[in-house]
Simulated assay, not measured.
Amino acid sequence: MTSVTEDSAQATRPRGDDDPSLHDPVDDDPTSPARVAWRRRTAIEMVVSGVLGLITSFVLSIEAWRLAKDPQATFSCDFSSVISCSTVAKTWQAELLGFPNAFLGIAFEVVVITISVAAIGGVRFPRWFMLGTQVLYTIALAFAYWLFLQSYFVIGALCPWCLLITATTTLVWAGLTRWNIRDGHLRLPGRAGPWSRGLVASGYDWYLTIAVLVVLVAAILLKYGPVLLAS
């Protein structure tokens, strides 16, 4: 009788439960109050960043509309020859797919805000859905940094609104990755699995996120610092 009970328990155990890369060093139960609260805090952080990104995308969309009507229009964020949204907006990089990039920003932010608000309400999404969102937002992150590098090295001008979107996209991607790693959706191979879950559970991954943003700011100051407000 005992063996039957043990066999039944083993059969009903979640698949992959013995995989050490899926164990959380702080709280291994994804439905525990502590994990639910942690997931809600992460979702709130993503909502705040996503809303800022959405507002910024709307502003850039309006500016792009004005520029389409008047190619000589100047933007509210044209402060100098270096800090100039209109200079960036008039390049081909600003309409890579044939329409203003800000429209893509609106679509990406709406998706992540919707998911985050649902998570705040206690909704848990299946692994395939969360991994699909991870891929989608990784593309958004790569696109945001590609645009930054184009502005930095090729265009020679910076758009404050675009920089804000780069920062918010970084924060949202970090939050989404944190969420997927700790909940076991994103499973890194070998020792990277337990290490990444321990890093996220301890909150040390925030240092990596902050370091990326600091490097971003430092790169801007290093190249443009002396002439940021030059006329």
Rank of each mutant, 00 (worst) to 15 (best):
M1L: 12
M1W: 07
E6D: 14
A11E: 12
A11K: 12
R15F: 11
G16V: 08
P20H: 10
P20R: 08
S21A: 15
D24A: 07
V26Q: 11
D28L: 03
R35K: 08
R40Q: 13
T42R: 12
A43H: 09
I44H: 08
V48H: 09
S49C: 14
V51W: 07
G53Q: 03
G53H: 02
L54Q: 04
T56S: 15
T56F: 03
T56K: 00
I62F: 13
A68S: 13
K69Q: 14
Q72G: 09
A73Y: 06
T74C: 00
S76G: 15
S76I: 14
D78S: 09
F79D: 07
S80H: 02
S80Y: 02
V82T: 15
I83R: 01
C85P: 05
A89S: 14
T91D: 09
T91Q: 14
W92Y: 10
A94K: 04
E95N: 14
E95L: 00
L96D: 05
G98S: 06
F99S: 11
F103R: 04
F103H: 06
A107K: 07
F108H: 03
F108R: 00
V111M: 10
V112Q: 13
T114Q: 02
S116A: 15
G122C: 04
F125L: 11
F125N: 05
F125P: 05
P126V: 05
L131W: 08
T133Y: 09
V135M: 12
Y137A: 00
Y137K: 02
I139Y: 11
A140H: 10
L141F: 15
F143N: 10
F143Y: 12
Y145S: 02
W146T: 13
L147S: 04
F148A: 05
L149P: 00
Q150R: 13
S151Q: 15
F153Y: 12
I155W: 07
L163S: 09
T166H: 08
T168I: 06
W179G: 00
N180G: 02
I181A: 07
I181G: 03
R182A: 05
G184Q: 05
G184S: 10
H185Q: 07
L186E: 01
P189A: 15
P189R: 12
P189G: 08
G193A: 13
P194W: 09
A201R: 02
S202R: 15
Y204Q: 11
D205L: 03
Y207R: 09
L208N: 03
I210H: 01
A211I: 04
L216Y: 15
K223A: 04
L228A: 04
L228C: 00
L229S: 09
A230K: 10
S231L: 12
